[in-house]
């Protein structure tokens, strides 16, 4: 009798495990930071789209920039018995306890877009972009484009001390290292905003002989570049021709500028972090094979040759 009971429960258990392995009835909880930027909104939209395409039942929780809300959301996901949890952590620290709870409940957690300071065994993997690499791609494009000609570069940095600002600067400088024809002549923070990007660019133009001394602008995000483009136009110069413009993020508005010939290149920070996450999750649930602890998303370079208007139309509806 005892044996039969055990056998029956084992069969049920196996059936359950088998059931959860097929993507069709997967339930995944997603704890999102909030919607503080257009990129974040696009990430939310794409995550929902990706889940729908794969027939995954996505439970979405907006934390409104608060860690305690995220912790609450994760606990509620655990209580609901979801198959996996996606977490875009608002801060790096303080996750150990709740991640341990998820681990005890045998629910894999995948980090999106940012990482945490917690032991690696507490989460399945982290899907993020490599910020240094992004800067590097932008730098390489500039090195190739000017092709040995002498070029003074001005840089619009992100918010001072933020990790995208530090890393995107580092990557760009690494790409320029050893190239004597390229020189960063001015570098200031534009706080990742259009207004500050415009204001700082105005001062760069004044400081560098009305802009005649500047051959290229590197902005740590597209919004600052969009602001700077307006400043260049108002100073009577042609952005994209007199001053090359390269930036990072690939938000829709920069594609409009590229279509108008006012921006030259952008490096994409893809908002589709969930796609790769769902892929590894499917493999993991099927084969039980642990993926690498870090999955790097592609930092794709877009230029004016990539039909910017088409990309703009594609991206417009994503909620950027």
């Amino acid at each position: 009798m005892k044996f039969v009971k055990a056998l029956a429960s084992a069969t049920i258990l196996a059936a359950c495990t088998f059931g959860s392995a097929s993507a069709a009835d997967l339930v995944v909880g997603f704890s999102q930071i909030g919607s503080e930027s257009g990129w974040r909104a696009a990430e939310t939209t794409l995550t929902k789209q990706q889940a729908e395409q794969r027939g995954i039942d996505l439970k979405f929780a907006d934390a409104q920039q608060k860690q305690e809300n995220q912790i609450k959301a994760i606990r509620s996901f655990i209580a609901q018995g979801v198959n996996a949890i996606l977490l875009a952590p608002v801060v790096a620290t303080g996750w150990d306890e709740v991640l341990q709870e998820a681990k005890d409940a045998e629910i894999p957690v995948i980090l999106l877009d940012r990482t945490v300071d917690a032991p690696k065994e507490l989460y399945l993997t982290a899907v993020t972009s490599d910020l240094v690499h992004e800067g590097n791609v932008a730098g390489k494009w500039l090195v190739d484009t000017v092709a040995g000609k002498s070029c003074n570069v001005v840089e619009l940095q992100g918010t001072t001390g933020s990790s995208p600002a530090i890393d995107r600067k580092k990557g760009f400088e690494a790409a320029l290292a050893g190239k004597d024809n390229l020189k960063i002549v001015r570098s200031q923070t534009g706080d990742f905003t259009r207004t500050k990007g415009k204001e700082v660019m105005e001062s760069f133009l004044k400081a560098e002989d009305g802009g005649k001394n500047i051959c290229a602008l590197y902005a740590h995000n597209d919004d600052m570049a969009v602001g700077a483009i307006q400043a260049i136009k108002e100073a009577g110069l042609k952005p994209g021709k007199d001053i090359l413009v390269v930036s990072i993020d690939a938000v829709p508005d920069i594609f409009q500028a590229m279509a108008a010939g006012e921006a030259n290149a952008t490096v994409e920070l893809t908002p589709n972090m969930a796609g790769p996450a769902f892929d590894v999750l499917a493999t993991y649930l099927k084969d039980g094979k642990e993926p690498a602890k870090w999955i790097q998303t592609e930092s794709k370079l877009y230029t004016q040759a990539d039909d910017p208007m088409k990309v703009y139309e594609e991206k417009k509806g994503l909620g950027y």
Partner: peptide
């Protein structure tokens, strides 16, 4: 003025 300056309304930063 701030919105007209950048031809857009940036609710997060304006």
């Amino acid at each position: 003025i701030a919105a007209a300056d950048i031809k857009g309304a940036d609710a997060n930063n304006a």
